[in-house]
Simulated assay, not measured.
Amino acid sequence: MNSLIVIPSRLASTRLPNKPLADIAGLPMIVQCLKRAEESNSGPVIVAAGDQEIVDAIEAHGGTAIMTDPDLPSGSDRVWAAVEAYDPEGKYDVIINVQGDLPTLDPHVIEATAEPLKDAAVDISTAVAEITEEEEKTNPNVVKAYLAFQQGNHIARALTFTRATAPFGEGPLYHHIGLYGYRREALKQFVSMPPGLLEQREKLEQLRALEAGMRIDAALVKTVPLGVDTLEDLEKARQVLAG
């Protein structure tokens, strides 16, 4: 696989405005995310920016940023716009979408996210971790992947994703981690489709792909990365990286 990592980022945020530029251990958060992605050694890394300030921050630290239309409706659309601008010849056949608010992300998770694409039948790959906190099982903000791992396997096909507590019965539940690997043609198809009915109901973009018959496989990893959505999250990230 010839992979390109793309980090979508924009300043607009309802809970923590301008968070990509928030200082964490002496660097803007988006630069910390860039470094984690580079440390994965999974391919070149670019930032798909919705604002010039993000481009400036990335370039000031030696990174590559592509300015995209600030009015694009989603991070996936921003990723695809950056891919088309950066690689019009189609050199990269796998696109890894890494969120721009994961400054403490274990680079191994990026590697693991792309691994299911080694199976030619898989269109999109992602990652999950077993839920260990009881309250997360019923928390609608924790997205669950509906899948099961055969004994000894760490990759499984995702049948669906839901905010509900699922599947029912005895056994582990899995927290979906919002990183994705796309075959280039799958990403192109995905952003060309209108939002799906279940996608709109659950507010989960990945359901659009499943409704269209695309296959998503997930790799099992050990921990859920810290996403920075609030000031409290930001302080946690600062403590982690300061250490």
Rank of each mutant, 00 (worst) to 15 (best):
H154V: 10
E135H: 14
T132E: 10
A164Y: 09
A166C: 12
R157E: 13
K144W: 06
E170A: 13
L173K: 14
A148P: 02
K137Y: 03
R157N: 08
A158N: 02
G181E: 01
N139T: 06
Y180A: 00
A156R: 07
A148Q: 13
G152K: 08
H176P: 00
N141A: 15
H175P: 04
L179M: 10
P167A: 11
A158G: 04
P172H: 13
V143H: 04
A166N: 05
H176W: 14
T160N: 09
Y146H: 07
T160Q: 05
E170G: 09
Y182L: 00
Y146I: 15
A127F: 07
V128A: 05
T132F: 07
P172T: 13
I131M: 12
I155A: 02
A166M: 12
A158Y: 00
P172E: 14
A145D: 04
E134C: 03
K144T: 03
Y146T: 02
H176Y: 08
I124M: 05
A148K: 14
Y146K: 04
T138Y: 07
V128E: 02
L147V: 07
L159G: 05
R183I: 05
L173W: 09
E135I: 04
I131N: 03
G178E: 06
T162Y: 05
G169D: 14
V142K: 06
I155T: 07
T132N: 06
Y180M: 04
G178H: 05
L147S: 02
A129T: 13
Y146D: 08
R157F: 04
F149N: 05
A145Y: 02
N153R: 12
F161P: 01
G178W: 02
S125H: 02
H154A: 11
A166S: 14
S125L: 01
T165I: 00
T165Q: 11
P167Y: 11
Q150L: 12
Y146S: 00
T160M: 07
K144G: 03
E130H: 10
A121Y: 12
T138N: 09
P167G: 09
L159N: 06
I177R: 02
A164L: 11
E133F: 11
L159A: 06
L179D: 00
V128N: 01
A121V: 11
E136I: 01
D123K: 05
D123E: 10
N153Q: 10
N141F: 13
S125Q: 02
N139E: 11
A164W: 08
A127H: 06
E135F: 05
G169P: 06
A145H: 04
V142T: 15
G181L: 02
E136T: 10
H175W: 09
Y174Q: 08
F149D: 03
P172F: 10
K144D: 05
E134P: 00
G152Y: 06
A148R: 11
I124S: 01
Q150E: 11
N139Q: 13
G169K: 15
R157H: 13
Y182D: 01
V142E: 03
L147K: 01
E130C: 15
G171R: 13
Y174L: 08
A158L: 07
Y180D: 01
N139I: 05
E134R: 03
A156L: 13
N139M: 07
Y174W: 11
H176V: 01
T165M: 12
G169S: 13
A127T: 15
E133C: 09
H176K: 00
A129C: 15
L159V: 05
N139G: 08
G152N: 09
L173P: 01
G169L: 14
H154E: 11
